[in-house]
Every structure is written in C-alpha cells, then in structure tokens.
Design a binder for these strands. Structure first.
Lengths: 203, 203
DNA sequence: AGTTGTTAGTGACAAATGTCATATTTTAAT
DNA sequence: ATTAAAATATGACATTTGTCACTAACAACT
C-alpha cells in the first residue's frame, strides 16, 4: 500500500484526484491540503511515501515544500504536478531533487503510473518538459517587467525604481511579485540571479 | 565669496571646521548639519557652491547625499571628508562624480586649498587613496561576515542563513548591517553586487 | 463582439529587512 | 596585562518587501 499526500489548491482537481487515486488498490491518500503551509506541516507528521505537489498554491509553493522536504531529509518522494511547462520551475524542481514532474494536461493514468514508477526508484519527467528544455529558454517576462527587474538588479529600492519608470511604488511591487511568481522565486536577489544566469539583463 | 555647506556628525569637528573656514576671507559657511537627511534638505534650499560631506552619518550617508545632489543636477560641488580610506567608499564617491575626496587626518589647510581648487574646476583626491587604489582592494569583511554575505548572495532569507551558520536571525541581520556599512550600501542586492565586482565571493 | 494579455493602479496585510543601542565572550595584538 | 577586534546575542523600531485581491484601460486576436 503506497501512502500518498496531495497538495493542490484547485479543490475540484484535489477531490477528483483523491477519489481516483483511492480507486487503485495499492494507493491510499493519507491527507491533502489546499495550501503549501498546511501541506508541509502535515507531510512532516504523516511522512507519506509520496507527496504530489502543485506549484501554484497560496503561501508556500510546491517547490518550496519540495525544498523543505529535501532539507529535512524526509523519506517522502515528491512528484510535482503543475499546469506550466516553465523552464524556471523545472530547474528548481530538479535542484530540489524531485522524483517526478508531471503536467496537469497529461491523463490521470500517467500520474498513477508515475507514482508506481517513482516508488520503484525511477525519476520521471513529462516529455513536454524535455522538449521545452531543449528549446531556447525564452524569457517569460514582459517588457515592463524586464525594465523593473533591470532596475532592481542595480540594488535600487522600490521608490527609486518607481520614480525612474514613472510608475507608482505599488505597481513596481506588483511587477516584482509577478516576476517572482514567473521565475518561481521569492525575492529580488533570487530573481536577479535567475535572470542573470539566463542573460536576460543584457544591455 | 564661496558658499559652503558642512555635513559632519562629529560635532566637535563640525564646529571647529566651521570656525576655521569662516576665518578665510573668501569662504562662508551657509549652513551645517549632523545628519544626512537635514543636510540634503538644506542643501536643496540653500544651493551652496560646495558641500563638504562626511560619510558616516545617521540616516543618509554622505555618499547618499552626493548621489542625490548628482541625481537632482544641483550645481553644488561635493567634497567628501572621511576617516576611512576604504576603496568601496571611494568607488561610490567617484561614481557620484564628487569633486573631491579628502581624509580627516590630512591637515585642515588641505581642505581649504581643496575648496578653492574645486571651485576652480579641479577634482582632487587624497594621495593616500590613490595608493590604496593601486594596492589590491583587500576585502574589509571578516570571515564570518563573508560567510553571511555568500549565503545572502544565494538569495536565501535571513532565517535560512541563520540556520545554515548556526547563528540567530538577529546576528545575521547585524552582520549584514555591518557589511552594508562597510561597503557603503543599504541592501543585500547592492552588497552582493559590490562583492561580486570585487570577486570576494569566489568559492 | 468577445476573449486574452499587458499595463497600471489601489489598498490591506504579513513578513522580512535594515538600523541602533547595548552586552558578553573569546581571541589577537601591544 | 591591558586593549582592541571579532563573534554572538537581544530587543526595539521604522521601513521595505512581498502577497493577494480587485479594478480598469487598451490593444491584439479569433
């Protein structure tokens, strides 16, 4: 019997998946959550064998939870389940040594198969991602976002950035927030690192 | 008559210098302050021909004020007057296009001479600094500070850095604050930039 | 005509960050 | 032996950041 934990904030999908997984004789969902914080707390307590994590969740993202699991050296294997084939996400997932990375638009049977394979020690990535990896890692930021990030990369505080681009401070923070979310990070420094590594800040 | 503004938080030196400068027939101190914020406000109002700025001051540092003056395109020329021959300071001063950079341990006549030369369009740097420039730019950080900065450079939040180095979060913030002050900056991103430019983060 | 994406903004809130003062202990230098 | 740095810590404080929800204008595309 494989013990599963499910973290997914889209409750429709959450409940549907739970039921579906329970139909399998060898799978059992021991818990589920709609946000990263609860997920992380419960995973520590329940120590499931596999945790299926969405990335986009309120509070801690699935990637954050994966980081935690790795840092705490829990035996729990992680399968990331997300809508987006963003390279930045995938990179972070690989860095967190997740056991699997699936897209929500693959059939649910794939997930079930993946769970069993992961338990058998395999590491599985959705084929779409591999394609995405090979293709140039196009920068997902809009022009304005890039401008903001460039300014932030100088170490300028929000107010100054806003003045420089003739925006309100709030807007700048919104842009930064959007950038972080696109790059799967949580602060300016990390965002700048990612952008620099991908040479998006040239000029 | 040359109009001067003096920003220096060591009030002993502040008053002494004011009197000394007033003794010169062609010099007049139109105002002085013990902190950067007041200095900047008053300089905008008074528009002195030359501003003599200490670096270490509460609130805005002299370098910050110099930045402001440059950004606002004021006609005021800036002479930085400081105790420390730190390269990082000097770099920032040059970037802010200051007209002069003197050390507090040079004779006060040097300052007076400098003021006149600066008004004549010259740019003057204390000779000690030039020496300091040529010698390797030794990093002013202690081992521990460097460790903290390296961690911060990864984009890690305070808590994580603290855990990683077995320190309290408060200590980490203190170290960072000390680092900022040594490098003449105000946030992690800037500090990382400076450190990276000087290759202090190798390994 | 309706959907989608980008740009821009506000407001509220929690969390993180930066600053300052201050204290103790250990280590290194005079 | 005394002094001076360095390492570590706490507490208080203001400011900055980051998140989230929600709105609205405008352009491009279907």
């Amino acid at each position: 019997m494989i013990e599963l934990y499910l973290a997914e904030d889209q409750s429709m999908l959450n409940s549907a998946l739970t039921q579906l997984l329970e139909l399998e004789d060898d799978l059992h969902v021991v818990g589920s959550a709609g946000d990263g914080q609860t997920a992380w707390t419960e995973i520590q307590q329940l120590q499931p064998q596999v945790a299926i994590l969405d990335i986009e969740m309120p509070g801690l993202s699935g990637l954050d939870v994966a980081d935690q699991i790795q840092a705490a050296k829990l035996p729990t294997k992680v399968i990331i389940l997300t809508t987006f084939a963003q390279k930045a996400y995938f990179e972070r997932a690989v860095a967190a040594q997740v056991a699997g990375y699936l897209l929500k638009d693959s059939p649910s049977d794939d997930l079930i198969a993946a769970i069993r394979q992961v338990m058998a020690g395999a590491t599985i990535y959705a084929p779409e991602l591999v394609v995405n990896m090979l293709s140039a890692d196009k920068n997902p930021l809009t022009e304005r976002e890039l401008a903001v990030l460039k300014a932030a990369a100088q170490g300028l505080p929000t107010k100054v950035i806003a003045a420089q681009l003739y925006l309100s401070a709030g807007t700048v923070r919104n842009y930064l927030s959007a950038i972080f979310s696109k790059l799967g990070v949580h602060n300016r420094l990390e965002a700048v690192q990612v952008a620099q590594r991908n040479k998006w800040l040239a000029s």
